[in-house]
Deep mutational scan, measured.
Amino acid sequence: KKVLATKVLGTVKWFNVRNGYGFINRNDTKEDVFVHQTAIKKNNPRKYLRSVGDGETVEFDVVEGEKGAEAANVTGPDGVPVEGSR
């Protein structure tokens, strides 16, 4: 997949743990970017399912997906594990 941007910060708009996807709002362009649970690189080690929490700040790369921009290599800021869904 073509990389459109790297090390982008954003805020998780919503994430559905059961369906394994959601959207992140980019801090720079204010665009919403699709995020799938497989894109989460560093999950909260205390959680079994990969997820990001609503309102959580995350860092990610933006790649060209089949339906437009999507997140890849999702971590917390500066590469720490994500907090995950509460």
Rank of each mutant, 00 (worst) to 15 (best):
V80N: 13
E70K: 08
A5H: 07
V3F: 07
K13P: 01
K30G: 15
V63N: 01
R46S: 12
P77W: 15
V58F: 02
K42H: 15
G68N: 03
E66F: 08
K42S: 15
N25Q: 15
N73M: 00
K67L: 09
W14A: 04
K2V: 04
K2N: 06
N44C: 12
E31R: 03
V33L: 07
Y21R: 04
G53P: 09
E83Q: 15
G65M: 00
D28G: 02
L4G: 01
K47R: 13
N25R: 14
P45A: 13
V3I: 12
V62K: 04
G76M: 15
E70P: 00
T6L: 07
G76T: 14
V17P: 12
V63T: 04
V80I: 11
I40D: 00
G22Y: 02
G53Q: 14
K2A: 03
D54V: 15
A5F: 07
E66N: 09
L49A: 13
N27T: 07
Y21V: 05
L4D: 04
V3Q: 06
T6P: 06
F15H: 04
F34R: 04
H36A: 07
V62Q: 01
N27E: 08
G10K: 04
Q37Y: 15
V80E: 12
A71P: 02
K67D: 07
D61G: 04
F15M: 04
K30R: 10
V74S: 02
W14D: 07
Q37N: 09
V58H: 03
K30N: 10
K41L: 12
G22H: 05
G22Q: 02
G55Q: 07
K42D: 13
P81A: 11
V33F: 00
V63D: 02
N43S: 14
Q37A: 15
R18M: 08
T11I: 10
K1M: 07
F15D: 04
N25H: 08
N25A: 07
P81T: 11
E31S: 05
K7E: 05
L49W: 13
V52R: 04
G10E: 03
V17W: 09
D32N: 05
F15R: 00
D32R: 00
L9Q: 15
E64R: 08
F34A: 05
V52T: 05
D28W: 00
V80G: 14
R50E: 10
G53V: 14
E70L: 06
K47C: 14
T11G: 02
G53I: 13
F60V: 01
N19T: 15
P45M: 10
I24P: 01
F34C: 05
E31M: 05
G55H: 07
R26D: 02
V17R: 13
F23T: 05
N44D: 11
Q37E: 12
H36D: 07
V35R: 01
P77S: 09
V63L: 08
V8I: 10
V33H: 04
V63W: 04
Q37F: 15
Y48L: 13
D54T: 15
R18H: 09
R26V: 03
V63G: 01
V80F: 10
I24N: 01
N27G: 06
N73F: 02
K7V: 01
V80W: 10
P77I: 15
E83F: 09
K41P: 06
V35E: 03
K30S: 08
V33C: 02
V12G: 01
